[in-house]
Simulated scan of single mutants.
Amino acid sequence: MQDRQGTGKCPVPSRLDALLFDLDGTLVNTTELHVDATNAALATFGRQISRSDYEAHLHGGANDDTRHFLFPDDPEGKGRDYVELKEQLFRDSIVELERMPGLTGLLDWAAEHSLKTAVVTNAPRANADLMLRALGLKDRFDAIVVAEEVPLGKPDPGPYLEGLSRIGCTAEAAIGFEDSPSGLTALIGAGVYSVAISGTDALPPLDRADLIIDDYRAPGLQSLLHSIRIPDSP
């Protein structure tokens, strides 16, 4: 798959101060672990969910939205029990994680140019800390925004606006990376130039991104980054 321009309308930043990253599916590919944990948790309630329904309704979503979707008649009871169990099963399944291809080089490049970086995720703090430690990235970001720290999760733009506030950057001088429709909606709503990580799947909902790439090694991303003025560059 080649890099593609999406249908996003956010202009390319005239200067670049910050890079914003989702976590699951963006820094590391944990989709299969999440799908397995979801169905293992649902099995205790005598239920299952198909992969297509998972992608359409749960992928990248906030846990509050997930429990209301799965347990509309009892989101505060069974819904909360499900979320707690699913997240614990997910954490228990983590043994070894690998960074997305090209991520290390991008983070090194950002550090060399004194760019701010932030992780903005719908994951709870326990998940985020565990994954970042497993990836050796716990200290590589200037800010980490997790589910418990914002009133609403993605697709609301609030998490990304909070991330920008913490690192002292404006949306117009940032680029954000996402892999899910809900995360992409949040980026677009925050006014951040959006890059969708699609891997080998051409998912139509990601066409709203400003740029669509397979991973961080993509020539299109490299061309984009080198076309923007970096404050400390001559």
Rank of each mutant, 00 (worst) to 15 (best):
A41S: 06
P75D: 12
Y82L: 09
Q48F: 00
L20S: 03
R4Y: 08
P75L: 07
G46S: 08
K78H: 03
Y54R: 01
L23T: 04
G77S: 09
T7F: 10
A43N: 11
H34G: 08
T31F: 10
L89D: 00
L97G: 07
R51F: 07
E98D: 15
T44C: 10
L42W: 04
S52R: 07
E96C: 09
T30G: 05
D36I: 14
L23P: 09
Y82M: 08
Y54W: 06
K86G: 02
V35W: 06
S93F: 08
Q48N: 07
H68W: 05
E84Y: 07
K78Y: 00
S93H: 09
E87N: 15
P13S: 14
D73C: 07
G77R: 05
R4F: 07
L27E: 10
D74M: 05
R47Q: 15
L23M: 15
H34N: 09
G79A: 05
G6Y: 12
F45K: 09
T66R: 01
F21I: 10
P13R: 11
L89W: 01
G46D: 07
D64T: 12
L85E: 04
A37Q: 06
E32T: 12
T31M: 13
G8A: 06
H68G: 04
A43K: 09
L97V: 09
L97K: 10
V83D: 10
D73E: 15
E87Q: 14
V28I: 08
F21R: 13
